[in-house]
Each structure stands twice: as structure tokens, then as C-alpha cells.
């Protein structure tokens, strides 16, 4: 088994425990949504972040509210990792008035600008320009804030990525390109639709590149640390490709409309094992190094589950939006 923590100097056990707990929060929120969608508990479709938690959390753990993130249709994890309110996120997905966007955005548009969360995005690579614009603003403000675009291997094939890398490198913007390569572009294996290595696309732009095991929180933290420091010190953009695996489908419930399977179930199961799953790997590390006992982990699991249950209860019990709100916020007259 790959060691989770073999060369870390600047990451304490406390840091790792905090990261673990937040990863668990994402996992349990997503597990709930995966189950609840079967009962039609909320109106829209959800794209779950299960298996990719070790990417958003170790990076966002190093950010504060003045830093910006822009993310993807698989954006619940980024929202939570950046400090978004779990109750308000859950209520948003349930389409309720108490949701972070008043029930007008839903799963694919959870955002909280006060926390630097520009939001999830329903367009693949759609957040790219937004993150670059925020990076430009931070650069002009000279406040040391950084801007992160989370995007997938699918978005890596959008032309706007090249435009973004060019301009960020040219203007030395405090931007981090965080590519989460989860191996599937919707329902197609990325190798079938992608030439070359994604991380290498940073090279001709002179952008420092990091390739990491995206299921290893420590690896991600280290690369993110380099990238964040570069941004804060006005040294320009960085590109990280984090290799991971999408344990769930592109979208929940996909087999109700797909005519055939597109991947082997054994492959999926492999990535759920102790050696591969990012959360199980952290737990193994804690136990092996006597940082946590099995009981400790069980206790934390329960704490987190209780918090998720509260958020779900809050979402379910919250009122529907007032229909007058449908006519608000489009344009300021």
C-alpha cells in the first residue's frame, strides 16, 4: 500500500485530521444524495464527488475567504471544502427557499460569493473564464489572493483551457489549474477522447506542472502548497493534474436512460478498496500510526453523519420558495 504520509514536514496530524473530517463530510453528503435521488426526494439530477474528496479538501484547506474557486457540475465537494454551509447546500439541492441560492440554482450552481465560491457550473469548462477574471482582480488588488479553477479531464479538451493558460501565463496571474482526472468524460473513457497527457498541456505556456495521486490527500496537499505559495508570492499560475477515479456514474440514475454499460463493475470496485479509496487510505494511516483508534474513527463518522442528517432534516423541513422569487434577481432595473 502506498504510504499516505512519507515526506510531509509542513502538514501536522491536526491538519490531516481536519482534512479527513471534511472529506468525510463530503462523502456522507454525497452518499445521502445518491440514496435520496432514488426516492425522488429532490427535483434535479446530481453528479457526485465520491472518490475525489482528497482533491478539493487539501487544496481548499489552504485557502481563505478572499481566495476564489470556480468549479464544475460535480461541485458539492468544492463548495463544502471551501467552507460553504452544508445545510444551505442541502436545502439548495432540495430546491428550498433556505438554499444558498434560494432554490434557483440547484445542485449544479451552488455558490457563495462571500466565501469566495464563484460556484459550481453546468457548462463543462464554463467556470474557466470566471476564475481567470477573479485571478485578474486579485492580481490588480495585489492582496495575495489566489484563484482556482477545478475542472475535469473532459474540460481539458475544451479550447478555452488554452486561452486561459495563455493569458494567465502572459499576465502572471495567481491562478491554479486543478485538473481532476477521474478517467471519464461523461460516459466515455477519457483515453478514447484525449490525446497526450493533460498535465503536459501546461508546458508550452511555461506554467509549472504537478502530477499527483489525487486519492492521496497528502500528495495533493503538497502540490497545492507549492501552487498556492506561487500565487500568493506573485509568481504566476500553476497546473496540477490529480489522478483519481469517479466511483459513481456521471450522473445518478444514469442506467435508467443509458442503453448499455460503459465500464466494468470490477474496475469500480477496485477503486473502493482500502488501497485506493482516499478516505479509507487516510483511515488506514491514522490507525497504523496510532493517530486514531477504530473507536475514534467510528465516533467521528457518527459526528459527521449526525451533521449531515441535520442538514437533510433542515432541507426537508424548509419551506418551498415563494413563487414571487422566480421573478427576482434577473436584472437590476
Amino acid at each position: 500500500m502506498m504510504s499516505i504520509k512519507n515526506y510531509v514536514n509542513n502538514l501536522s496530524d491536526e491538519d490531516l485530521k481536519r482534512i479527513y473530517k471534511k472529506m468525510l463530510m463530503i462523502r456522507k453528503c454525497e452518499e445521502h444524495l445518491g440514496e435520496a435521488t432514488k426516492n425522488g426526494a429532490f427535483p434535479g439530477a446530481v453528479h457526485l464527488y465520491i472518490g475525489q474528496e482528497a482533491i478539493a479538501v487539501p487544496l481548499c484547506d489552504q485557502l481563505n475567504d478572499s481566495d476564489w474557486i470556480s468549479s464544475t457540475h460535480r461541485g458539492h465537494g468544492h463548495f463544502i471544502a471551501k467552507g460553504g454551509d452544508v445545510k444551505k447546500m442541502m436545502a439548495e439541492i432540495y430546491g428550498k427557499s433556505t438554499g444558498i441560492c434560494g432554490g434557483k440554482g440547484g445542485s449544479m450552481h451552488v455558490a457563495d460569493f462571500k466565501k469566495g465560491i464563484i460556484g459550481a457550473n453546468g457548462v463543462v469548462a464554463g467556470g474557466m473564464g470566471l476564475a481567470v477574471g477573479a485571478a485578474l482582480a486579485s492580481k490588480m488588488d495585489g492582496n495575495g489572493a489566489v484563484s482556482i479553477i477545478f475542472f475535469g479531464d473532459g474540460a481539458a479538451n475544451q479550447g478555452v483551457l488554452m486561452e486561459a493558460m495563455n493569458i494567465c501565463s502572459l499576465w502572471n496571474l495567481p491562478m491554479i489549474f486543478m485538473c481532476e482526472n477521474n478517467q471519464y468524460s461523461e460516459f466515455t473513457h477519457t483515453s478514447e477522447v484525449t490525446s497526450g497527457k493533460i498535465v503536459d498541456r501546461a508546458e508550452p505556456f511555461g506554467i509549472p506542472k504537478y502530477e499527483v495521486d489525487g486519492n492521496n490527500a497528502v500528495d495533493v496537499w503538497q502540490a497545492a502548497y507549492q501552487a498556492v505559495q506561487r500565487g500568493r508570492n506573485d509568481e504566476g499560475p500553476s497546473f496540477i493534474e490529480a489522478h483519481t477515479y469517479r466511483q459513481r456514474g456521471h450522473v445518478e440514475f444514469e442506467y435508467t436512460f443509458l442503453s448499455r454499460t460503459y465500464r466494468d463493475q470490477n474496475e469500480v470496485e477496485l477503486w473502493k478498496t482500502n488501497d485506493k479509496d482516499p478516505i479509507l487510505r487516510l483511515e488506514s494511516y491514522f490507525i497504523e500510526h496510532n493517530k486514531y483508534s477504530g473507536d475514534d474513527i467510528e465516533k467521528i463518522q457518527k459526528e459527521v453523519q449526525d451533521e449531515v442528517d441535520d442538514a437533510v432534516k433542515f432541507a426537508i423541513e424548509s419551506p418551498e420558495p415563494d413563487i414571487t422569487s422566480a421573478m427576482e434577481h434577473m436584472i437590476e432595473r
Partner: peptide, 26 residues
């Protein structure tokens, strides 16, 4: 040159950058 920038020819990112920069206070 900070406030008045020559961009590459890249309308795709230019239109999006405006949204990000506006959201961030410009």
C-alpha cells in the same frame, strides 16, 4: 497597462473573465 490591457485574440475567455472580474469587485 494594468487597467487598459491588450488581450490575445481569445473572445471565449475574454467574455468569461469579465464575469469573474466583476464578481470580484471591478
Amino acid at each position: 497597462k494594468d487597467r487598459v490591457r491588450d488581450t490575445p485574440i481569445c473572445e471565449n475567455i475574454m467574455t468569461g473573465m469579465a464575469v469573474g472580474a466583476a464578481a470580484a469587485g471591478y
